[in-house]
Amino acid sequence: MAPGTSSFADFLGDHAPELLPGRRMGEGPAGSLGDLAPHGTTIVAATYRGGVVMAGDRRATMGNVIAQRDIQKVFPADEYSAVGIAGAAGIAVEMVRLFQTELEHYEKIEGTTLSLDGKANRLAALIRGNLGMALQGLAVVPLFAGFDLDRQIGRIFSYDVTGGRYEESSFHSVGSGSVFARGALKKLYRDDFEESGAVSAVVQALYDAADDDSATGGPDLTRRIFPVVHLITADGGRRLPDTEVAAIADRVVAGRMERPDGPHAEPLSGSGSTTEEQR
C-alpha cells in the first residue's frame, strides 16, 4: 500500500486497473454503445472580474428519450476549480470522482496543491485513458474552470476525446447545445462583467441552447428544476443556492415572454444613439 507516485490514477492503474472509469465496463459489443447509456449535454462557463462561473443544464438523454430531468453535471474538483461533464453520464461521474481523489491525493503526498495548469493536465490524462470507450460511443468531454491563484484570474479549459487540452478565452461551452449557447454568449458577454452579469449571461445561454437543442433541458418551472451554477473566486468555490438560480431563471423566462429570442447585445460605443428597441 505504499503510495509511490503522487498520481492516484497511476497508483490505481498499477494495483487495481479494473477500477478505472474507462475499464469498468470491459469490452462492449461491436458498434456504438452511445444509445445504451444516458448522456449529459450542455455546460457553459464564463470569466468575470474576480472569478469564473460554470453552469450546466439538468437533462440527461438516452437516444430520443429523456433519461433524467435533474442530473447534476457541474461538480467542484477542489476548492478553486470545477468540472462540468458532457457525454456518457455514468463514466463521466466516475471520472469526476477519480479526478477529485487525484487532486486530494497529490496534495497529501506532495504537501502542496497543484497549479491550475497542473490540474488541467491531470484531467487530460484521465480523458485520454477513456479513449477506448470513446471509440465505442461512450465519450466523455468535460469542461474545466478554476481560479488561478498565481495570476489572480479565472481560466477555462476545454478538451477533446483524445485528451487534447485547450485554454479558452472569456467563455466556452461543450455538449450537444454548445453551438447555440456559445452563439448567445458571443452577443451577451462583456469583458467588464461582474458576478451577477456573468451568472445571468450563462443562464441566458443555457436557455438559448434548450430552445434549439432537444437534448438540453431549459428551466423546468413546474418541477422547479433549474441549472446548477458554480462560482469560483479567490475566496474559493461555491454553488449558487437554488433559490437564487430560480429567481434568475424566472426573470429570464419572463423576459422571453416579451422577447422570445432573448435580449439584444448592447450596441458598440460610437455606433449612434440607442433606440428603444435596443433597450
Rank of each mutant, 00 (worst) to 15 (best):
residue 274 T to V: 15
residue 147 F to I: 05
residue 128 R to T: 13
residue 7 S to A: 08
residue 48 Y to D: 00
residue 226 F to R: 08
residue 98 L to M: 11
residue 188 L to G: 03
residue 174 V to S: 06
residue 269 S to Q: 14
residue 60 A to N: 13
residue 274 T to W: 07
residue 225 I to R: 09
residue 172 H to R: 14
residue 138 L to R: 00
residue 108 K to C: 12
residue 80 Y to C: 03
residue 188 L to V: 07
residue 48 Y to C: 09
residue 154 G to W: 10
residue 118 G to Q: 01
residue 109 I to E: 15
residue 202 V to Q: 09
residue 134 A to D: 01
residue 104 E to F: 13
residue 158 S to Y: 02
residue 43 I to E: 00
residue 34 G to W: 01
residue 268 L to W: 07
residue 4 G to W: 12
residue 4 G to R: 13
residue 51 G to L: 06
residue 101 T to L: 14
residue 224 R to K: 15
residue 154 G to E: 08
residue 206 L to N: 00
residue 16 A to S: 12
residue 222 T to I: 14
residue 250 D to F: 07
residue 120 A to D: 01
residue 127 I to M: 07
residue 113 T to N: 13
residue 67 A to L: 01
residue 174 V to T: 10
residue 38 P to R: 10
residue 254 A to S: 15
residue 122 R to T: 01
residue 242 D to L: 12
residue 226 F to T: 09
residue 105 H to S: 12
residue 224 R to N: 12
residue 276 E to P: 05
residue 124 A to E: 06
residue 115 S to I: 01
residue 125 A to K: 13
residue 83 V to F: 07
residue 46 A to P: 02
residue 164 G to V: 06
residue 181 A to K: 04
residue 151 R to L: 15
residue 14 D to P: 05
residue 11 F to C: 03
residue 277 E to Q: 10
residue 236 G to Y: 05
residue 253 V to N: 04
residue 245 V to Y: 05
residue 17 P to L: 03
residue 264 H to E: 14
residue 41 T to M: 04
residue 144 F to S: 10
residue 208 D to A: 15
residue 153 I to P: 06
residue 122 R to D: 02
residue 199 V to D: 05
residue 112 T to Y: 12
residue 192 D to V: 09
residue 196 S to T: 11
residue 261 D to P: 04
residue 135 L to I: 00
residue 80 Y to I: 08
residue 126 L to D: 03
residue 212 D to T: 10
residue 37 A to S: 09
